[in-house]
Design a protein around this nucleic acid. Structure first.
Lengths: 152, 152
DNA sequence: TCTATATAGATGCAATTGCATTAACCTGGA
DNA sequence: TCCAGGTTAATGCAATTGCATCTATATAGA
């Protein structure tokens, strides 16, 4: 468990599983959304953050911090969301460079409809496979892999 | 733990962690490779499978099964690998449509150099964070999330 | 005040991905 | 033998991503 240049067989196996399973789960969820005629997961992530932020909205750089998307990615994603009327861009009083992104009613509705599909995927793909205790164990173990062993 | 349309809080948390952590880990590993002037992870996956397959090589559709890449993705990835001289495409005796992909000496060398960086990432990002027992537990839990609760 | 540097966000361009379709070949049954 | 349907792999085109850069504004210090 000390710093090694060569990973242990256990580490390799855990890594490989993590890679495969996470890719598979993402694909499954993405597929379910597509089949429901809904936007991709990335949109959900952003709409979710904005919905939680409420009327105050969020600055793009805050979304970057929260979602792990690259700056240019957020910039373009927001442009698409705005084009679809799911978010609106407001000028910021004390910073002429910036903007505040706020979710619209349509955006909230879209998020809700996405959740009805996405949530079901989570329930089926994960909730139905492990007990609450096992899920807790899993979360705890994954939590130890975060870079800044941060919050949440 | 039964089939639910609405996921439990435990399921949601485990899912969220899995998404965030796996994305973070992939990015870290990808970044390490890039910093080492090496090709992306996807190339490693394919080179690894081909190296394991040995002289007999693999058909593209076998790579698809093993790696979870989409068909068109493999097709183009192999074209790039071939252009770089890392693999070679051989006609198949009893199937005129197909080809066998075989890793070249240069391909093996590239794979080795990638592993020296990738393996270190795995050791640091995962191996150094959890004990062997914890890694085993993690693998076991992840294993239960695979769609066909298949092998390895 | 003026300048240098930092930060927020957008964008041109190349590479990659996704989707749908296509071309080539195989297989089984009439 | 011939044809219908399936399988293997490639590809045209649109959308997205990645990279580097750019514009605009803010901030700190001379």
């Amino acid at each position: 468990m000390t710093e090694q240049a060569i990973p242990s067989p256990e580490a390799i196996k855990a890594w490989a599983r993590l890679m495969r399973v996470s890719r598979h789960l993402v694909e499954s969820a993405e597929e379910a959304l597509k089949k429901g005629g809904l936007p991709p997961l990335a949109w959900y992530d952003v709409l979710h953050e904005l919905a939680e932020a409420g009327e105050g909205g969020l600055r793009p750089f805050q979304l970057i911090e929260r979602t792990l998307f690259a700056q240019y990615n957020i910039s373009r994603l927001l442009a698409r969301l705005e084009a679809d009327g799911l978010v609106e861009k407001l000028p910021v009083a004390d910073d002429g460079r910036g903007q505040t992104i706020r979710i619209t009613a349509k955006g909230r509705d879209t998020r809700r409809r996405m959740w009805s599909v996405y949530g079901r995927s989570i329930a089926e793909l994960v909730g139905a496979k492990l007990s609450a205790d096992e899920l807790g164990m899993m979360s705890a173990l994954l939590g130890r892999l975060r870079h800044p062993p941060a919050s949440d």
